[in-house]
Design a protein around this nucleic acid. Structure first.
Length: 538
RNA sequence: AGCGAGGUAGGGUAGCCUGGAGUACCCGUCGGGCUCAUAACCCGAAGAUCGGAAGUUCAAAUCUUCCCCUCGCUACCA
């Protein structure tokens, strides 16, 4: 679920929403009963501060951003069952029911703490909004949570000559506040049991080990309320100035959004032990999904399900291209669409998907993927097969079906890769299929055979076989391409008379190629103009 | 500082769980083939002390230990 106080950048997109959409499209092709729930995470400090800066209500900004981001995801071809948001009555109800049960069941601990308050801004300051001099290295740029110079973790009260990062003034007082903490320590045995049983379902090594190591250290209570205004008010007397922490309304938001989608059926998914909950997230928020949500699900005793699979991604980083989200100047999702159409980004980003390690986004890498992989290998193969078939129609006879063993093997590898949550491997098999087709082209030289076929019965037979084989590969490629480049997939499949969403079942069907129309390339190379546009972000 | 992950030809990756000759893929470089297709495609070659050191083993990129570098988390950024 993206946090939307500004437009997400490409790294955010490739980390969670895109792989989730790709995987969901695969599940639909497979015919599984799957729903794809996503939405805008709206609460939290960054949104509140951005709203203050703009002089508008946080809810107004949050809804504005929600609409913008929602449209943007749609432009990228994401097909959510429902794209909702966290600040809704539906989510509030679910959040309160879970919160109240956690309270009633004795899992919420009241804790008192001294917290910095800015008398100018009239608000409590989270740790990182207190700045000043580091007590260890005496650098003046330390924040309340950490000193970037010496790397030491700090307490806000340790900061020498503290000032407020929002207004820059030093009019700060420390006031006693109370918050409620989720007693993860009490829930530890059940959380541990959950992680041990479910982490075998294709969790990444990183996700498993950091969750296990946290358990080994011993879980500690974690505050789930904050002294701020923007959010769901804490439904308890004595907490009038507090709201429920953004992560709590976000994690539960998946449920609230499902409820927003369907006020009855949401329980069939969330309170059904047969549901497989598959969550896609970046490496920076793994523990919220592996520890904190399970803790709430267990502690509330409302029968909510926990994740079956955690699909964690590392980061897409760039040293040469600005991704900056906070300043609104980087190559974000909106800016990217002005350079290339959605399909190109979908495919290229998945091709550089940081599945097991951070991966580097470079102009060179993007151009290579678009020009070589998409255009030269995949797009051009489709084009040469279709054109050759069109100009030798007498050799295209009857129906096409996928029955070559090598093609079937690639399709099986594609499915296995998806079923094992190996998305980079899955996209790799599409490229392999194109390689296979291009290889056959060169080895068998069907254009030579086609010339001979006019007065040579043997050559005619051979040609027909090869044409049918190549068309089958092109057809299969059209289907396998669907999760990654849905528009190009649809264009390619239109030459086989298919105008509906592709399914894996279609790979077993016989189809008739439609060679009446002049085939158009499904992909094109990046033009110099497009590359120039990309360079602006360097 | 502690914990987790990553480090593999010039660049980008896969391989590591389950040890078997540096195996594979894309770009780039060099040589050849082809002319159906979008100046595309195919074949071949060169290029790597697999971050470093030690250990286990008949055998280590893979297992163990230590060290170095990068990223993330460390509980009030999300």
């Amino acid at each position: 679920m993206p946090y939307v106080y500004s437009v997400p950048h490409l790294g955010n997109f490739v980390g969670s929403v895109l792989p989730a959409d790709v995987y969901y499209k695969y599940l639909k092709m497979k015919g599984d009963d799957a729903i794809f729930i996503c939405g805008s995470d709206q609460h939290g400090t960054p949104t509140e501060l951005a709203a203050i800066k703009k002089g508008i209500e946080p809810s107004v900004l949050a809804d504005e951003m929600h609409e913008r981001v929602k449209k943007l995801f749609e432009k990228y071809g994401c097909t959510f069952t429902h794209y909702g948001k966290t600040n809704t009555p539906e989510n509030k109800e679910v959040v309160y029911s879970i919160f109240n049960e956690l309270y009633n069941n004795g899992y919420l601990l009241e804790r008192e703490d001294m917290q910095a308050y800015c008398n100018v801004d009239k608000r409590f300051l989270t740790d990182r909004f207190i700045q000043g001099t580091c007590p260890y290295c005496h650098k003046k740029s330390a924040r309340g949570d950490q000193c970037d110079n010496c790397g030491r973790l700090l307490e806000p009260s340790q900061i020498i000559e503290p000032f407020c990062a929002i207004c820059g003034k030093s009019d700060i007082t420390f006031i006693k506040t109370k918050n409620l903490a989720l007693e993860l320590n009490k829930l530890q045995p059940d959380i541990a049991k959950f992680i041990k049983s479910n982490s075998k379902y294709n969790w990444s090594k990183d996700a498993i080990n950091k969750s296990l190591s946290l358990l080994k250290e011993g879980l500690k209570p974690r505050d789930i309320t904050r002294n701020m205004k923007w959010g769901f008010p804490v439904p308890l007397i004595g907490y009038e100035n507090s709201v429920i922490y953004v992560w709590i309304t976000g994690l539960i938001g998946y449920i609230g959004i499902t409820k927003e989608w369907d006020s009855k059926r949401w329980r069939d998914y969330w309170q059904n032990e047969h549901t497989q909950l598959i969550q896609f997230l970046g490496k920076d928020n793994t523990i919220f999904h592996t520890i904190i949500w399970p803790g709430m699900a267990i502690g509330s005793r409302l029968g909510f399900i926990m994740p079956h699979t955690i699909k964690e991604s590392q980061f897409l980083v760039s040293e040469t291209v600005k991704f900056s989200k906070s300043h609104g100047v980087g190559l974000n999702m909106s800016a990217a669409l002005e350079i290339l159409e959605a399909d190109y980004w979908r495919f290229a980003l998945m091709h550089m998907y940081p599945e097991n390690a951070d991966s580097e986004f470079t102009e060179r890498g993007l151009v290579e993927t678009v020009n070589v992989i998409m255009n030269d290998k995949i797009g051009n193969l489709a084009q040469r097969v279709l054109k050759l078939s069109k100009s030798n129609r007498f050799l295209v006879e009857g129906d096409i079906s996928v029955d070559d063993a090598a093609v079937k093997k690639i399709i099986k590898d594609y499915c296995d890769a998806f079923d094992n949550m190996q998305l980079k491997k899955a996209i790799g098999t599409v490229v392999r299929l194109a390689d296979l087709g291009n290889g056959i082209m060169s080895k068998k030289e069907p254009w030579m055979l086609a010339k001979k076929a006019k007065d040579d019965a043997k050559a005619e037979r051979q040609s027909k076989k090869i044409f049918s084989e190549l068309l089958a590969i092109t057809y299969a490629m059209g289907i396998l391409l669907y999760p990654f480049a849905p528009k190009a997939s649809a264009e390619l499949l239109s030459y086989f008379g298919i105008d509906t969403e592709p399914t894996l079942e279609m790979l077993n069907n016989k189809v008739k190629p439609n060679l009446d129309e002049e085939p158009k390339p499904i992909f094109q190379k990046m033009t110099n103009k497009e590359i120039e546009k990309l360079k602006k972000y360097a």
